[in-house]
Nucleic acid binder design. Sequence first.
DNA 1: TTCATTAATCGTAATATTGCAATGAAACAA
DNA 2: TTGTTTCATTGCAATATTACGATTAATGAA
Lengths: 109, 109
Amino acid sequence: MGLVKTEIFNEQQNEIALFAKVFGHPARVAILQHLFKIDTCICGDLVIEIGLAQSTISQHLRELKQLGLIKGNIEGTSVCYCIHKENWMQMKKVMHQFLDQDISDETCC
Amino acid sequence: MGLVKTEIFNEQQNEIALFAKVFGHPARVAILQHLFKIDTCICGDLVIEIGLAQSTISQHLRELKQLGLIKGNIEGTSVCYCIHKENWMQMKKVMHQFLDQDISDETCC
DNA sequence: TTCATTAATCGTAATATTGCAATGAAACAA
DNA sequence: TTGTTTCATTGCAATATTACGATTAATGAA
């Protein structure tokens, strides 16, 4: 199948999974880290920085953009990509809620 | 290709991506939430709770176990699964470091 | 022993993802 | 205009993932 049965899970579970999935590739992690570091960026930089083909990077950027985590402004012939700060903070809330669930002290196994 | 070029990324980036990938499926998110909620569990519960085939749940449990996020103790004919608390906290550190990167105030786009 | 229960594993089909070369499209320079 | 640069898109091929039925292995009950 290779097809996720989204309909049997609730909205929150699907949202967490969507965010996590986009972080589930080291290239996208590296892109985001680079954008945080230099705080503004053009795509060409990333191709050199990361070491994948230009079309591959462009594809990863599109996925990040589709989820709203980055935005890109066209500046002449190049594109300025950066973190979408409001959406990043929103995403953080969702992920923290999941990661920071209470661990009770009861020992089971 | 369908094959991630792990070798061009650093250890931290690959580790973040591995953790994120395992959270990138709503069934695994749901399994973890359930384990947190009831704090001890057997696999059969999960099959009813989640609504996927037993073999599918078993597969997801294996992935979570392989990453060390859960552990399973055999108890008679059933298996008691629960969160691996130490490893979960360790994972949280790694993910927080990534999610909580500083967002500078400079506006770029 | 035989039967039932539980969960892991195997095999397989359907679909998704990754990566790249080739091509397009838009902006700018000469 | 023509060429150049920059990035997006398209069209693959290779591999990975998801899901399930069937089977296996292990335990416990009768």
